[in-house]
Design a protein around this nucleic acid. Structure first.
Length: 803
DNA sequence: AGCACGCCGACT
DNA sequence: GTCGGCGTGCTC
């Protein structure tokens, strides 16, 4: 008998290994590595992934696999290996790695139920237990617990009257639609038609139709074409037509017409940049390219034509974009070029839609996937290229287990497939640019905009000076004048602010009391719309205070500026201006993001006001002014990348202006105009910024000169968190070389979240082959306390958020 | 992670 | 003498 090795769906240290199961005869052909199975595990049934087949096991009392969930493996050989690599690389459990690689719809749902045993009727049970089974022979375990019947049921179970069963359910709902099809061939249809009663005109017409199209047709389509349901029903009853539920894909882009677009003629600069990529594709050589091109320099066309080449070779392509629902224009360009060969995967899709897109890939029905981070795991078999657009974006790093960076996964996969990776950006991450400088990546530069338009003129306004001149408004005089000017000319403006809500916090003017979250060490944010104070970390909400809780003063003031407040201010100052506001609050609903953007593109508003999310992708000819209300809000975050992020964001936002015929202008308002990331964003001088920032990183021993790893320990008791972090810090220090720097224990920048104290230890290192093993040791050492005493230890090799 | 098993104190 | 509390260790 054959034996399968299975990774079970229990994310825990002790179960992070394979378990062996016998393969029952009837499943022998189905059970291959990569299929999901149901297996008995202790007293319950759970899901697992088959990772290997063998004929012998050290374990003697093997159980049998209960069932297979797939007929075709959901993980191919490459992805199974990639999962192992990911486990090693990010120090997570293997099951977590595999689950991260699949759409959420393929995750198991568990249900615990009580069922009457065969031959038992509910009258046999004790009275209290009977009404539990009022609606049949089974009841959910949850309601049994609610009704306090657990003990009773245990007795009944001992008497053999009930059983407790564990059900593993697939979440997948394949969408099915009723289709109508002729049961006989065309000739028999003609025959049947003759036999119909002469009055049955409609039925005759229907048969005419099917004689011409002998394929299944959706009932809805028939009705839409003027056939009546009655006629269809009659023919089904007569046994001439049949109905069948057929699986269809949910298509998020259904009904959208994409006009076929042919490749554009490349500029000389583009030709020069694409040549090495094409030859790498041709020679099946793995190489990483950094495509460094200013906004509007035509990177996308290079992506498109590289993919074209890959498709001609019969291979496949993955394109990662930061968060695709944000860039409908990007999707459009891919669909226009490659039509139905494109699958799209992003967070705006429902679980079912994501699953359907994933299936198209699995069934080889598409050749290109355009998607956010997790699309890097697309189950293609012949990858010919991987493209990561806006390579510097932090959303490529997953901030929960497995904590992977899509760039690393991309390079790993591309190496196995011997194909190129193209990292594109106008403001590359320091890490990538440094690698390109060192020759690890190949640098391809597109220094000019395609239309030869100069980059927009940037004015940096010192808001301290405005204040001194008596301007207390949130708009500098210069920005306000320009706003009025655009309004008069009928041109559009984008105003950018990186904060949501109304005002960031509420403070008492008499005693200085600031309202904090009771569970987290963080100030509550005022949300005007719901008149609530909200915590962005734990979701805690409370009404806005009327009097100060500390000193009962009534002088409560709102500080900081949010998008809502700017909007109000705008309507006050420029009542005739039509404003569209875009932030998490107004784009929460599916599709609203795209709707708002389209409305702006069609000229439904003069001013687009928004947060981060409007920084990229929007490309409208009528935008001639971009205003950044406060450039320094993120500069002061406790994060060594804050300068880099500020520079990238400002450059990105500035690029929104004047992309077409009309020249653009940018106004950046700041309280620290002398800071190099703001000053150099003003002149759009990436190279000088790179030099400056590299010096700072070298000095403080940060990436790309050093790698970093972060250990965060959290516990309800402060002392426990501190002492564990201290022990860990000491242990790690003892295991590393003298070159490594171990900082800690220190309180996290957010020292308490959801009533848990947080301490951390930061490790900076260049080469420490022992580090991963040591960190695993740490997890092992504290495993019991993690399981029982509510201790949490999180490890992040290459963290992007140091909080 | 669940869950059973087992050992201890409080009770019909 | 039994019920139910939680600590311990296993799940192929």
């Amino acid at each position: 008998m054959k034996i399968a090795s299975v990774i079970v769906d229990v994310p825990a240290k002790q179960t992070d290994k394979t378990f062996d199961y016998l393969i029952p005869d009837n499943l022998e052909s189905v059970i291959v590595p990569g299929v999901r199975v149901n297996v008995p595990f202790g007293p319950r049934n759970i899901q697992g992934f088959v990772t290997g087949i063998k004929t012998e096991s050290e374990f003697k009392k093997l159980k049998e696999i209960a069932g297979a969930l797939d007929l075709k493996p959901v993980l191919n050989k490459e992805l199974l290996l990639l999962g192992e690599w990911l486990t090693e690389h990010s120090l997570c459990y293997r099951i977590s790695a595999y689950q991260a690689m699949l759409p959420a719809a393929l995750k198991a749902k568990y249900q615990k139920k009580v069922v009457l045993t065969e031959g038992t009727s509910k009258e046999d049970l004790e009275e209290e237990a009977r009404n539990l089974f009022s609606s049949g022979s089974e009841a959910s375990w949850e309601t049994a617990v609610e009704q306090n019947l657990v003990n009773l049921l245990k007795r009944e179970s001992d008497r053999g009257l009930v059983d407790v069963v564990y059900e593993v359910k697939d979440r997948v709902r394949r969408k099915k639609l009723k289709h109508i099809l002729p049961l006989g061939d065309t000739d028999s249809l003609a025959e049947q038609k003759e036999r119909l009663s002469p009055q049955a005109k409609a039925q005759r017409r229907l048969l005419d139709f099917f004689q011409e199209h002998p394929a299944p047709v959706e009932l809805k389509t028939l009705v839409a074409n003027g056939f009546s349901q009655a006629a269809v029903k009659a023919l089904i009853k007569a046994g001439i037509l049949g109905e069948q539920d057929m699986e269809v894909y949910r298509d998020p882009y259904a009904g959208r017409e994409f006009q076929r677009q042919e490749p554009l003629v490349l500029t000389e600069a583009q030709e020069k940049a694409i040549a090495p990529i094409l030859s790498s594709i041709e020679e099946e050589r793995h190489e990483v390219f950094l495509l460094y091109g200013v906004t509007g320099s035509g990177k996308t066309e290079i992506y498109l034509q590289s993919i074209q080449q890959v498709l001609e070779k019969g291979e496949e392509a993955i394109v990662l974009v930061p968060e695709i629902s944000l860039t409908p224009q990007m999707v459009k360009r891919f669909k226009e070029r490659f039509g139905d060969l494109v699958a799209v995967m992003h967070s705006g899709l429902s679980a079912g839609e994501k699953y359907d897109e994933w299936r198209k890939i699995q069934r080889r029905e598409v050749k290109v996937v355009v998607g956010a981070r997790s699309a890097i795991f697309a189950p293609f078999k012949n990858l010919g290229i991987i493209i990561i657009d806006e390579e510097h974006e932090t959303s490529y790093k997953q901030e929960e287990n497995p904590r992977y960076h899509a760039r690393d996964v991309a390079i790993h996969r591309a190496a196995t497939h011997r194909c190129p990776v193209v990292l594109g950006s106008a403001t590359p991450s320091l890490e990538s640019f440094a690698r390109a400088q060192k020759g690890v990546y190949t640098l391809l530069a597109l220094p000019k905009r395609m239309n030869e338009q100069p980059l927009p003129e940037v004015e940096i306004v010192d808001m301290r000076e405005e204040m001194r001149q008596g301007n207390r408004s949130m708009f500098s005089r210069s920005l306000f004048e320009k706003l009025e000017d655009r309004l008069a000319k009928g041109e559009q403006t984008v105003l950018f602010l990186n904060k949501r809500g109304h005002s960031s916090f509420v403070m008492c003017r008499d005693c200085g009391y600031v309202i904090n979250c009771p569970n987290c060490e963080i100030t509550l944010t005022y949300h005007r719309y719901q008149e609530q104070m909200k915590c962005h970390y734990c979701g805690y909400e409370e009404p806005v205070p009327v009097i100060c809780p500390e000193c009962t003063s009534e002088h409560i003031r709102y500080f900081g500026t949010g998008t809502q407040k700017v909007e109000e201010e705008l309507t006050k100052l420029l009542p005739e201006a039509r404003v569209i506001r875009m932030d998490v609050d107004t784009t929460g609903k599916k599709g609203s993001h795209e709707r708002l953007l389209n409305a702006f593109g069609e000229g439904a508003a003069d001013i687009l006001l928004g947060t981060q999310m409007i920084a990229k992708g929007l490309d409208f000819p009528n935008i001639t002014l971009v205003g950044v209300l406060s450039a320094d809000t993120m500069l002061h975050l406790p994060d060594f990348r804050s300068s880099e992020k500020t520079f990238q964001l400002l450059t990105q936002v500035s690029g929104r202006a004047g992309r077409h015929e009309l020249p653009g202008e940018v106004v950046i308002q700041t309280y620290t105009p002398e800071h190099y990331s703001i000053e150099l964003a003003g002149t759009q001088d990436y190279d000088r910024f790179y030099q400056q920032e590299m010096m700072a990183r070298k000095l403080h021993k940060y990436p790309p000169f050093y790698y970093i790893a972060l250990v965060t320990v959290s516990h309800e008791e402060l002392m426990k968190a501190v002492s564990v972090t201290e022990k860990i810090t000491r242990y790690i220090s003892s295991r590393l070389s003298k070159e490594a720097v171990v900082l800690g224990p220190v309180a996290s920048p957010i020292p308490r979240i959801k009533n848990r104290y947080r301490y951390q230890c930061l490790i900076k290192y260049k080469k420490e082959p022992e580090l991963r093993a040591s960190l695993r040791q740490v997890l092992d050492r504290y495993q019991q306390e993690t399981a029982k005493e509510g201790l949490q230890i999180s490890l992040d090799l290459n963290p992007y958020i140091l909080m």
